[in-house]
């Protein structure tokens, strides 16, 4: 009787355990299962150990995709973080119609489905009828993201910045609003300049939300799929073939489930590693500060 009572707690964990098992552990183990076997059909499988991992890690096309991905995420963070903070700083501080309107307008891109965003930008940048594409081409500059890798990148970056900077703005704005008015008064009494207020009050006070913004933006941009898939399909050539696009090509296009499984696990570990690093760095920089 006593034993049963002591173990009763497990019953309460069971629902959570089941949910996590079905939503995370079982799918992950399925991938692990694929990554160490060569599967020909139902009941026809050979254990291959680490072969797929070796193959994936030495795949030059994967290396190219990884560098492309890193460059893309790096640029995204470099542009979106400062831009988001800058725009948040210029937003109205007082509650009212102005602030509400600003927030809705800013949040608009976030409300559009991702594949629709790709379609919008395909039309927007078409050299013949697109508002942006036609405008640039009529100015005498040849611009076509289906022909030039550089143009594809520029278009993709513009789309990404337009789509996701609002998230950074919203988070930064929330962080700014949570700073008590007394801080600004105290700074004015101390005779601090606007730059000093930003550097010594606003930025440290926003650190918490900015850490979250940075992590979210890194993860999302590192895992980006739908928008480039619709806009460029990974081209021209392989110019915009990011990790996820390459992965889908292997898994769905070539139906190589083994290498795709290994690839997925490596991909997952890379994201995890970067997030951990970012988190640790930001935690250390902000040590002892109010969150």
């Amino acid at each position: 009787m006593k034993k049963w009572q002591d173990n009763k707690g497990w019953l309460f964990i069971l629902p959570v355990f089941l949910i996590v098992a079905f939503s995370a552990i079982i799918p992950l183990m399925t991938v692990v299962n694929y990554s160490i076997q060569d599967i020909f059909g139902p009941g026809q499988r050979i254990f291959v150990g680490t072969e797929w991992f070796k193959e994936t890690l030495t795949d030059p096309r994967l290396h190219e995709a990884l560098w492309r991905q890193l460059l893309f995420s790096g640029l995204v963070l470099l542009i979106e973080m400062p831009l988001g903070i800058a725009i948040a700083l210029t937003m109205p501080t007082k509650k009212g119609l102005g602030a509400s309107l600003c927030l809705v307008l800013v949040a608009l891109p976030l409300l559009i489905p991702w594949n629709v965003i790709g379609t919008i930008w395909i039309i927007f940048t078409r050299p013949d009828i697109g508002l942006m594409g036609a405008l640039i081409n009529n100015m005498g500059i040849s611009f076509d993201h289906t022909a030039s890798g550089l143009h594809a990148w520029i278009t993709l970056m513009l789309m990404e910045v337009w789509h996701w900077t609002p998230l950074v703005i919203l988070l930064a704005y929330a962080g700014l609003r949570s700073i008590p008015e007394a801080y600004y008064q105290a700074a004015r009494i101390d005779g601090a300049s606007a730059w000093a207020i930003f550097k010594y009050i606003q930025l440290p006070k926003m650190r918490g939300v900015l850490t979250i913004a940075l992590l979210l933006r890194f993860m999302d941009s590192f895992l980006i799929y739908a928008e480039p898939f619709v806009l460029t399909g990974g081209g021209p050539g392989n110019a915009t073939t990011f990790l996820s696009i390459y992965l889908v090509k292997i898994a769905v296009g070539q139906f190589d489930l083994g290498p795709a499984g290994a690839f997925s696990l490596i991909y997952f570990l890379i994201v995890l590693l970067f997030c951990y690093l970012f988190y640790q760095v930001l935690l250390n920089v902000g040590k002892g500060e109010a969150s």
Partner: peptide, 13 residues
């Protein structure tokens, strides 16, 4: 002028 507030106002960093 110097002022002290209800909230604890210090430079966080």
């Amino acid at each position: 002028v110097a002022m002290v507030y209800q909230q604890f106002i210090n430079y966080p960093s």
